[in-house]
Design a protein around this nucleic acid. Structure first.
Lengths: 342, 342
DNA sequence: TTGTAAGCGTTATCAA
DNA sequence: TTGATAACGCTTACAA
């Protein structure tokens, strides 16, 4: 029952096994370069002492970490959780460890997290979106850390990215809405600050509105934080307008589901009284009644591919690549023609 | 455009600023112990060089990391995501960094992740549930790493835990179901292997069944993996039985929502044709129609409190504590009396 | 096949 | 207030 007060080190193992630290190190890293009998003795000592290598020391001596970091806005958003899960599974298969941090959608926290992960020796970083202080790119370059952006496609950006064209996808979706005959539309968007996906999606709506020759000023934009309840509250506000919209285009599925919930509570029938659309195509979109018209985003595919691209970058196999994934509109029951406006 | 080939070190900063490494270190760690003029000069050099401290070296020299690790079964499950988000926010406020890893519900991967996080210097670890190889507790003790279990309350366990009594909560819920008059019930559970929450919840159902004097053999248990679709498939199977259940008790809300979805697709009305219950009380439970009867779990509260307890343990302020949170049944529309069986 | 010893980038002790 | 310098735990030439 005497608790060892000191954490066992390589040296302790070496002494216990009666060999040098170099030999212990070899047993752990290239076992074939050590004769069987010694290895057995060493491994036994390792187990008896409960030895675990000190990562920091190892990283410092070997100058490699096999670690990738990812910084997402929040773990609470299912789409990031899903993409990151796939990302991590792919990395793990190749022997990399993933460190995940979240920024709460704040640029300053993201920057802090980038520094934290870099100082922890991350060989590469996965970031979300392109909206951040350009200074940070210099920092990453100085530190020799590779970075890749996901969830947003952008050919001209500083960093390579894998994702889809948020703007084009939202434009296509909005065109579908307009084709149904809607002329009074409103947008419920996530907060745009530091969130280029949200910005791009609104621009996509505006593209379609402008192309249809409508007055873009007449399109109400309601900005709110992420959540079902905030979506519901936004819907309330929009319906209280003098001329409420006949279609509510939401920046993501969660907001849209909140809107649908409130519509039901207000006694409004979707889509005959009001149409509602989302973005992401999370499972929830097919659970609600009627099912939600939305944009399908291949989150897991994105995570998997991001892992491959980033590993290639880190290993110097490529300088990185920008890849565009398809995000297509899924027309479902929540979108219909507007009611007769009499 | 000449990319610096070497990552700047403390030494580089010291040279650039014309001081010793000790002074640079002081500027970074205890700025007040350095005179203003020198500090300004040093900080300028830090910025110009894009210096970032090497975490491994720092940890090795200072023998502290201010890092907490958490290993959750999967990021895709909203309840973990939510609890961990709260956990991380609380840690961050006290200057700790959180490293998150996921085990895909596999004990072997969890063990691997524990070793990874420990070797990365985590001062403390948050683990889910009590189901793991006891050997690992020895390892943690040897390494001097504090660990706390969440999502599962258990007074007698090896580790301190914060959570709720899964078994008692499920028993209470089941009693509500039986009170409605149901006598043919079925359980849709997550995979029990290595998942004590799932095991406990089933035991809770059986407790209530036994207490009601019913034949526990007659209670079908269907085990499946996590997901809406798997919940739907499980429901299919149960309804195809010779004597289908009148109430389906699901191990979590996601499975329950899948069951509700399939019920609707089969033309069954909930609850008049079949009652369905969940566990967790995620937002989704209040979105579906009818709303889901479930057990409310205070995920965020658990995350926040877990952070405080674990930080106290790591800082030696306490030897840890086991705390039980309330998880109470929320009766909603998805549970009603059974249809006339005639 | 194994051992010796020189780093790796910090912090901390002790002097100056 | 600052500077030398010895750890910290590990890897890796280079020798034996």
């Amino acid at each position: 029952m005497s608790a060892p007060l000191a954490i066992p080190t390589l040296n302790d193992v070496a002494k216990a096994a009666g060999v040098s630290t170099a030999t212990v190190s070899r047993c752990l890293n290239s076992p074939d370069r050590v004769i069987d009998s010694t290895r057995d003795r060493v491994m036994q000592a390792v187990h008896e002492l409960g030895y675990s290598p000190n990562f920091g020391a190892r990283a410092m001596a070997s100058r490699r970490t096999n670690t990738i970091g990812a910084i997402i806005p929040t773990m609470e958003n299912a789409i990031f959780a899903r993409g990151i899960q796939a990302f991590q599974e792919e990395l793990r298969q190749s022997g990399y460890t993933l460190l995940v941090a979240s920024s709460s959608y704040r640029e300053d926290i993201e920057e802090e997290q980038i520094r934290t992960l870099v100082s922890r020796g991350a060989d590469g970083l996965l970031l979300i979106g392109h909206s951040r202080d350009p200074e940070i790119y210099k920092f990453l370059a100085t530190q020799g850390v590779q970075a890749l952006v996901a969830w947003s496609h952008n050919e001209g950006a500083k960093l390579h990215s894998i994702g889809f064209d948020n703007r084009a996808a939202m434009r296509t979706l909005t065109e579908s809405v307009l084709e149904k005959g809607h002329r009074r539309i409103a947008v419920v968007s996530a907060k745009r600050t530091g969130n280029d996906r949200a910005q791009q999606r609104i621009l996509g709506v505006m593209d379609a509105v402008a192309a249809a020759g409508m007055d873009s000023e007449a399109t109400t934009i309601f900005e709110t934080s992420y959540g079902i309840e905030t979506g519901a509250l936004a819907f309330d506000q929009l319906m209280a307008l003098a001329t409420p919209p006949t279609a509510v285009i939401c920046g993501n599925d969660v907001l849209a589901v909140g809107a649908m919930k409130r519509a039901r509570e207000l006694g409004l029938i979707v889509p005959s009284d009001v149409s509602i659309t989302g973005f992401d195509d999370i499972e929830l979109a097919r659970i609600v009644v009627p099912a939600l018209t939305t944009v399908h985003v291949p989150h897991r595919e994105m995570g998997t591919k991001a892992a491959r691209i980033l590993m290639d970058m880190v290993e110097g196999k490529s300088g990185g690549q920008t890849e565009k994934l398809d995000a297509d509109v899924r027309l479902r029951g929540s979108l219909g023609p507007p009611a007769d406006l009499s």
